[in-house]
Structures are given as C-alpha cells and as structure tokens.
Design a protein around this nucleic acid. Structure first.
Lengths: 238, 238
DNA sequence: GTCTATACCCCGATAGAC
DNA sequence: GTCTATCGGGGTATAGAC
C-alpha cells in the first residue's frame, strides 16, 4: 500500500472523511460509557449523548441506527476491553494452570471493581426490552477463553448417580473440544462451572454491597477462596 | 380488644377509611410489581402506575411520597415474601444441617427462577441514583437467617497464613453470635460466604442467560453443586 | 453530515378546586 | 382523597433545508 505522490493528494478526501467519522464514533461511545455510570444501561439516552458532545439530537442517527444498536456497540466494546485485559494478564503470568486460573479470576474481579458499570452492562441484570444479538457471543466467550483449556481442572470425576449432570455439561465439553484443547471430562466441566459461579457470585455480591456489615476486607477473603478452588479442583498439581 | 355494639357502629368510619387505604396501597404496589417485570426498576414510573390503576397522576402522592419511596416499599415487600418462603421451607424440611442448607439454596433458586424481576430488584445490579435506606437491612438478613446458625458448617479451619481472611470475617461471626447461635469459627464463616457466593453466582449466571450454549439442563448441575458444597463444608456429618 | 422543526410520546412533582 | 391544570423537564425518531 505504498502511495506515490501522483496517486492521491497528501490527504485524500476519503481518508479525512473516515478519520472524522471515526472520531465522531469514538466520542459517541465515550459519552455513552459515561452515561452508563450515571444512569445505567436502562436509561441510556441518545439525546443525552448528543447534548454531551454538542451536536443536534438528530445528528447521532448518522452513526448509530437506534438506541438498541448503541447498547450493542457498548457491549461489544466492554467485552473487547475485558477480553484484552484477561488475555494480557494471561500472557504475563506463569504458565502453570494454578497461576493461570488465579490470574484470570483476580483480573476479572479487579476489572469489575474498577469498572462496575461496564461490568454490570455485560454481567449484571439483563436490560428489560433489550436482547443482545448473536454478534455479542464471540466477544463474550473470549473473556473465558484463557481458562477453557487449563489442564488438570478437576479434582474428581462425577459419580455414576450424577449422569444427568454429566450429560447437561456436554455442550461445554464440545466448546472446549472445538477450541483445540484436550478433551474435558464431566468432572472437569463441572469444576469449571462451579469455579465460574463462585467467582461471579463473589464479585456480584461485593458490587451489590451485600458483604457490607459481614466482611471487613474483601481482598483476603477472595484470595482464600481462590486458593481453595485451586486446591479442590486439582490445579496445583500441574 | 373486644368491642361492644355501643363502642362503634358495625363499620366504624376509621376502619372503612383504613380499608380503602389499604386496598389502594395494595393496588399501587401490585401495579408497580407488574411494571418491574416490564421495564425494570430503573424505569419504574409513578405515572404508569396511576394510568394502570385508573387514577389521576397526582393521586398517588397521597400514598407514596416519591418514586424512591415506592422502590423502597417494593424492596421491603420482595424481601418479605422471599423471607417467608425460606422460613416456611426451613420449617417443612428435616432439621439436619445438610437438608436445611440444601432446602435453603434450592428455595432461593426456585424463587429466583419464578420471580426473576423481583429477585433482580434485591440481588441484581444496583439501581443508579437510588440508595436503599437502613430499613431494608433487617428484612434482607431474614432471608439468610435460616442458615446462619447451622451446626457443623466448616470442613476445616483457616490456616495460620490466612489470619487476614479470618479477621475480615469477624463481623459475620459477630452477627451469628448476636443471633443466639453457637459461636462460629473463621472456618465456618468463610465456608458460609463461599457457599453463599457459589449459590448466588449460579443463580445470576443462569438468569443472565450465560449458561445458554454451555449447559443443557441446569437443575441437575445445581443439585450436584449443592451436594459437593454440603460434603466439602462438613454438613453431612450432622 | 449537520442543522431546524416536528410528531408524538414519557416523566416527577406541586397548586388549588371540589 | 381525588381531581384538573401546570411547571419544567425528559425521550425516540423522522422530514427536509442547507
């Protein structure tokens, strides 16, 4: 893509226009993110965005088709940022399964505490009247990807009386297989869902203020929780 | 409080007025509950309530001081219903710790799945701009009360390197002590918080649709989760 | 691509007549 | 206790001029 001077003027009209468009989109999304913290996703308003960035209320429709589409783009952006975060943390951490898993969980919680409203947008109560389109699924799975294939994630197999549980977790096993990881036993998939639930539950209870009055500092308790999960799910043997 | 005929007419004016008032309050709260499912707590509207029950928009202010107060009364109502539910379930169940705890957790989840919007009001993402008053604390603790004093709730003690975790859980131990239960060790309070997190995490991930595509049936998985918690936290020995 | 203007809605809260 | 009227906001979305 080397341009000779004859090919185009130093600033081609297309490029300049595109730059302006990109900048406008950036401003819209940034303003919407700010609004998210103010009034929450359910009361996001396109007009408030236009007021915020100083354009006419109708101007925004050149960039965003509707309020719902704006929400979708916010979700994509948030999942993208959180996905980047956990990926970078995974790369920076030691490769053993125990460290990888604890890094993932602490990164998730740290990010949730630092961006509670963004977290709520994707993992909080669903927004009534809004249904996330299919396009949000892939970015969502990326957040969990770093721990999907961790070896040794299971302290024990499911018992013969837990066949129904094992069967119900087949889809997750299929996802793991499709991601080019070692096949996961029912004990593994069950352990993953359990650990996932425990982490999300702790984070959401903490964000909701439900620990106030029952817990002094939350960091050490979460840390102990992770240590137990690592031990109980056999991750420390790797 | 026996009334002779001379004391008051068959229907005293006070009583009739009070009955009408009660009925009106009932209608307001019922309509608001319906709205909760439609638009969510963030967009609850007093005007919509008045439209719904067929009175002038200003009439509602004789019964509710403000939108925030209506939300507070909804929260109190929801905690009340959920508290009744878990209490009744606890009474109907066998008294051993394992059964009591599993009953509590399954009742919680069943209620959440049956009343997802009511559940979200009290355990979902906080409503931006609204802060729950102190009066909501007691009804909230009643929901957890049935499992506060369960004996044997701890598989193991916290280690000496987990002193900070133990210290952080002191407030919970104090709550338990104040409720006339056996003193709870740090291992017990930690186990309680862990179990609580796991249950809430599962419920909220399920309600958020985050299990779709990864889990077929959720009931057996939750059941297995509870069995493991009971075993790991030493509840089955009682 | 931005603007004004517009159609047609929504809201919380209060004043004052009945 | 309920009403009408009102103040002073808010919103989605489109049409059409520039």
């Amino acid at each position: 893509m080397i341009k000779t001077p004859a090919d185009s003027p130093p600033e081609s009209p297309t490029t300049a226009r595109q730059l302006a468009r990109d900048e406008m989109e950036r401003r819209i999304l940034a303003s919407a993110r700010r609004q998210l913290a103010d009034v929450g996703p359910a009361r996001l308003s396109l007009r408030a965005v236009t007021r915020d960035i100083g354009v006419a209320s109708s101007a925004v429709y050149r960039y965003v088709a509707s309020r719902d589409e704006l929400i979708t783009r916010l979700i994509l952006q948030v999942f993208g940022e959180l996905g980047d975060e956990v990926e970078q943390a995974a790369e920076a951490a030691a490769p053993d399964a125990a460290t990888q898993w604890r890094t993932w969980a602490t990164t998730l919680r740290r990010w949730a505490l630092d961006h509670p409203f963004d977290w709520a947008l994707v993992y909080g109560t669903p927004i009534p009247g809004y249904t996330a389109p299919q396009a949000t699924i892939d970015p969502a799975t990326r957040v969990n990807a770093p721990v999907l294939g961790l070896p040794g994630f299971a302290a024990e197999d499911l018992g013969p009386d837990e066949a129904e549980t094992a069967a119900s977790l087949q889809p997750l096993a299929e996802i793991i297989r499709a991601s080019d990881h070692e096949p996961a036993s029912p004990g593994t998939t069950f352990a993953m869902m359990t650990a996932w639930s425990a982490v999300h539950g702790f984070i959401n209870l903490e964000l909701g203020g439900h620990f106030v009055g029952a817990m002094e500092k939350t960091d050490p308790v979460f840390d102990t929780l992770l240590r137990r999960l690592v031990r109980d799910f056999g991750l420390e043997r790797t």
